[in-house]
């Protein structure tokens, strides 16, 4: 899902980098204006946390494993804008230090994973009634949306045939999104039991 460098055409690369850059600049501006001093180290530590859980593969029943993105989890804790900044930092570090995804394709990856996961995921979480169902559905739908975007970017670059790409990738990432939703729910239930005040630190 992390698109490496070399898969996107120059046009798609430049467009996605511009869009992602604009969203990032806007989020930084908003968060900068309202951030409280104690939230600066908190955002840093949570970025470290997100970076780590993205590297940590999670065993799921059935013998396979997936890794979490943490997008919805962080957005619920800190709000979607701070969540988006944290996810972007983590994607940059993954590209530079672990070669997951590229630097020029970062624009596309930031849109697909950070922006969709945080903004679309969080909006759905608020729209859908009922907390449990909302978490699972929001995570699953944002998984499908980001897979469809990823497939479209690759198709625009002539890498995939559009409908085949969208069908295959949405199916795979719909399932991963569903699993991430269930795990996010388990983590949030654990937090509510052990340290509920964490859930009230939105920027």
């Amino acid at each position: 899902m992390h698109i490496p460098d070399g898969f996107l055409t120059p046009t798609v690369t430049i467009t996605t980098v511009t869009v992602a850059g604009a969203v990032l600049a806007n989020s930084l501006k908003t968060v900068n204006a309202s951030i409280k001093p104690d939230q600066i180290p908190l955002m840093g530590l949570l970025a470290s946390f997100v970076f780590l859980i993205q590297l940590f593969s999670f065993p799921i029943p059935g013998g396979t494993s997936i890794h979490l993105t943490g997008a919805l989890l962080i957005s619920i804790i800190l709000g979607p804008r701070a969540g988006f900044i944290i996810l972007t930092v983590s994607l940059l570090a993954l590209a530079l230090l672990f070669q997951h995804g590229g630097v020029f394709s970062l624009g596309a990856n930031v849109i697909n994973m950070a922006a969709v996961g945080c903004f679309v995921g969080y909006a759905l979480y608020n729209l859908i009634p009922g907390r449990r169902g909302a978490i699972i559905l929001a995570s699953m739908i944002s998984g499908i949306v980001s897979a469809a975007l990823c497939a479209s970017e690759l198709a625009l670059s002539g890498m995939l045939e559009l409908s085949a790409g969208i069908k295959t990738m949405s199916f795979i990432y719909g399932i991963t999104g569903l699993i991430e939703g269930v795990i996010t729910l388990l983590i949030l239930e654990f937090l509510l039991k052990v340290k509920p005040e964490i859930l009230g630190s939105e920027t």
């Binding site: 908190l42 840093g44 530590l45 946390f49 940590f56 388990l186 983590i187 654990f190 052990v194």
Partner: peptide
């Protein structure tokens, strides 16, 4: 097993949060 791993991650989140308070 899934539940156990979810609580490891939850615990890690709590420790990150508490460390951020100390760092601040």
């Amino acid at each position: 097993r899934t539940q156990v791993y979810a609580s490891i991650i939850g615990m890690l989140l709590i420790r990150s949060y508490e460390r951020a308070e100390n760092v601040y």
